[in-house]
Nucleic acid binder design. Structure first.
Length: 419
RNA sequence: GGCAGGUUGUCCGAGCGGCCAAUGGAAGCGGACUGUAAAUCCGUCGGCGUAUGCCUACGCAGGUUCGAAUCCUGCACCUGCCA
């Protein structure tokens, strides 16, 4: 059997590791790995998904997985190179922690004989006094070294500077690694490439405090062919929470990836093996119009994040919305399901198309809406709108309830009639 | 501390008393072509509006003027040269 590290490398999930030979050897046995997720928002996002995938692979390879949700680190904030963060309240952070703890569950096995464990660093950080922290943890760190970290160096250069609070962040994260090393024998921490400094700070601390050795594995930033970060849809983050990015929008995000990128993304985000991915890659080259690779990618990831039921629904909805058929011929329940996840708004019978476009968010302003219609970029129920003053009448509300507005090729919204 | 230059729309970057909602490029958005792809070409790109109309905008605060992004004063920040 090949080493899991080879598998991760083949999938493009490894940017950098400490002592690769040593790590490879450790992975031949069984180790305990952890990855931390700070509760900076009410949901994990695209970037965190990569980390969850790595943990998933490692758990399947027989390693023990600890998922750390950062109840304490989230209160402090990892310094960004650009500007100081605004502190979140303890209540809000606790709320995010609870949401994220629940959110990671589908990705890992929490039952069985090798269950993943969720830990919260607030449990061991909160009881620690400032004096003990300074004496036991702080003493192991040299400021000289800390200020060399990229994010911190950038902030020291900046007009704004950096608060003592954020400066301390790396000590907290390092302390987490030490704690998990002691309590669980954890010897591997994974994270994004930008976390390298924080991760290795933990390795150093384990070495200084315990004389032990531990590993770090970082994942590359996933970028497209232009070097742009993935995970932004129309400028907004792609969230894993269905109430923040709908399963429909999530699926659509993936179905739209470029041909040249799809094989790479299949390797990173799906469980498909080399043969399957090779076949899909070939399909993308030979029969690109079928979009088989994109469909597989979108279906696999949507299923992983939202479940098979959600995937079936959004596939059906996509079929209705992007198929060639006339939406008027779709039966009422199917239409309702297909439009359920679209952005929508309630409109009066007799409202203008312009008003409906603004109400549903397809256009930013009435002026923009008029422009779009003038450019021929708007359709109602797949029929192009030719007149800027066109209104939505009875016939436009399919099954008496909803009109399907489209801007451009792929932006849809539901205008629901107010009864 | 001294001297010089800069701060313009999402970003870069012109404008240097009226013709400026502000040249040009990028991003974005729409159209054509396609495959809900890329590339290319075309259009569009502050808000309201039927409008030759109104509002908001050229670092911040004042001032001069019939009229200022453009001139003057003060303030903040940035850059270069000298100490």
């Amino acid at each position: 059997m090949t080493n899991i590290l080879d598998e991760l490398q083949w999938r493009g999930l490894v940017a950098q590791t400490t002592d690769e030979a040593g790590l490879r050897e450790a992975l031949d046995g069984t180790l305990t790995v952890y990855c931390g997720f700070d509760p900076t928002a009410a949901s994990l996002h695209f970037g965190n998904l990569v980390q969850l995938i790595v943990l998933r692979h490692l758990q399947r390879a027989g390693h023990r997985v600890l998922v750390l949700v950062g109840g304490s680190t989230g209160l402090i904030g990892d310094p960004r190179p650009t500007s100081e963060r605004v502190l979140k309240t303890k209540e809000l952070t606790a709320e995010y922690v609870a949401r994220i703890q629940a959110q990671v569950r589908p990705f890992l096995d929490f039952e069985g004989d090798n269950p993943a464990v969720v830990v919260n660093n607030l449990d061991w950080t909160a009881p620690l006094s400032a004096l003990d922290f300074l004496r036991e943890v702080g003493k192991h760190f040299r400021v000289n070294q800390m200020i060399r970290k990229e994010a911190i160096a950038a902030r020291l250069e900046s007009q704004e500077g950096i608060s003592y609070t954020e400066f301390s962040y790396q000590l907290l994260q390092a302390m987490d690694y030490l704690h998990l090393y002691r309590e669980f024998g954890c010897t591997l921490q994974t994270g994004g490439q930008d976390q390298w400094g924080n991760l290795t700070a933990g390795v150093d601390l384990i070495h200084r405090a315990e004389g032990g050795s531990a590993h770090v594995l970082t994942t590359p930033l996933i970028t497209d062919e232009n070097g742009e970060k993935y995970g932004k849809s129309a400028g907004n983050a792609v969230w894993l929470a269905g109430d923040m990015t709908s399963p429909y929008a999530f699926y659509q995000y993936w179905i739209n990836v470029a041909d040249s990128e799809v094989a790479k993304l299949l390797r990173v985000f799906t469980d498909r093996d080399r043969d399957q991915i090779a076949a899909l890659e070939e399909s993308a080259q030979e029969r690109p119009h079928l979009r088989e690779a994109q469909r597989a990618l979108a279906a696999d990831i949507t299923t992983l994040v939202h479940g098979a039921g959600a995937t079936a629904q959004v596939e059906a909805a996509s079929q209705v919305l992007f198929g060639r058929g006339d939406p008027a011929t779709v039966d009422a329940p199917t239409l309702r399901d297909a439009t359920a996840e679209l952005p929508g708004a309630d409109v009066e019978d007799g409202s203008s198309v312009v008003e409906a476009l603004v109400a549903t968010g397809l256009a930013d302003s009435k002026g923009a809406a008029r422009r779009l219609i003038g450019d021929g970029g708007v359709s109602v129920n797949n029929v192009k709108v030719g007149d800027v003053d066109q209104v939505l009448g009875d016939a436009d509300f399919l099954h008496g309830s909803v009109a399907l507005l489209r801007r451009g090729r792929k932006h849809l919204a539901a205008a629901r009639k107010v009864l």
